[in-house]
Write a protein that binds this DNA or RNA. Structure first.
Length: 195
DNA sequence: GTTCTAGAAC
DNA sequence: GTTCTAGAAC
């Protein structure tokens, strides 16, 4: 990284002794020209560094909003611009079924909306937690978040009990009735039998 | 979020 | 013996 860029990114990036905490990774990624696919004054779309399907983008606000739980009614038009980005990404991938949504309990800081294809074929998809975070109610569709924000002005958190139960849901193919015994069997099934 | 790896599951 | 999952990371 150049000195100029380092100074623009603030103290967190200047420190070479200790890398920034892993949970701040997206704040760096959203400034990486290699990853950016579309940008406006308020919104940026990047390719996910560890895609969990053939197509996998993240849509983030330029402003420092931590998660869906930091949203209020003033953010409705921002979220509607997320929808515009989603529509354009869909146009660019005619043929693929792209879903847009948020994780109920995100691991990384900075609000981010996943835009992901339904094939779920990717070497980065490895664990049951990966699978369940995109195929259970842990994945909250974009329209649901927008509706809840319009109706109640904020997003309700899920309970730790529901979180635990969603993450431990038995494996189930997202495209047919197949119930794989383990992750390798699921990945083989997706790769071989499912279009 | 990922990586690594101990030991459970097979 | 090998495959697979799940918990620690100072």
């Amino acid at each position: 990284m150049s000195k100029r860029n380092a100074s623009m990114l603030g103290d967190a990036y200047k420190s070479t002794k200790q890398p920034r905490h892993w949970s701040l990774g997206l704040v760096g990624s959203m400034k990486d020209p290699e990853l950016i696919v579309k940008q406006s004054d308020r919104v940026v779309a990047i390719r996910d560094k560890y895609p969990k399907a053939k197509v996998h983008y993240l849509v983030l606000p330029q402003d420092d909003i931590n998660s869906i739980y930091g949203l209020n009614k003033n953010h409705i038009s921002l979220l509607e611009e997320f929808g515009d980005f989603y529509e354009e990404l869909k146009e660019n991938h005619d043929g693929a079924t792209l879903r847009a949504g948020f994780h109920a309990v995100p691991s990384l800081q900075r609000l981010h909306m996943h835009v992901i294809s339904s094939d779920m074929v990717s070497p980065c998809l490895k664990t049951k937690v990966h699978w369940n975070s995109f195929t259970t109610k842990f994945f909250i569709p974009y329209q649901d978040v927008l509706s809840e924000l319009k109706e109640s002005g904020s997003i309700q958190k899920i309970s730790t009990e529901l979180h635990k139960s969603l993450m431990s849901t038995d494996l189930q193919c997202n495209q047919c009735s197949f119930k794989p015994k383990n992750m390798p069997q699921l990945k083989e099934h997706l790769f071989t039998h499912v279009k």
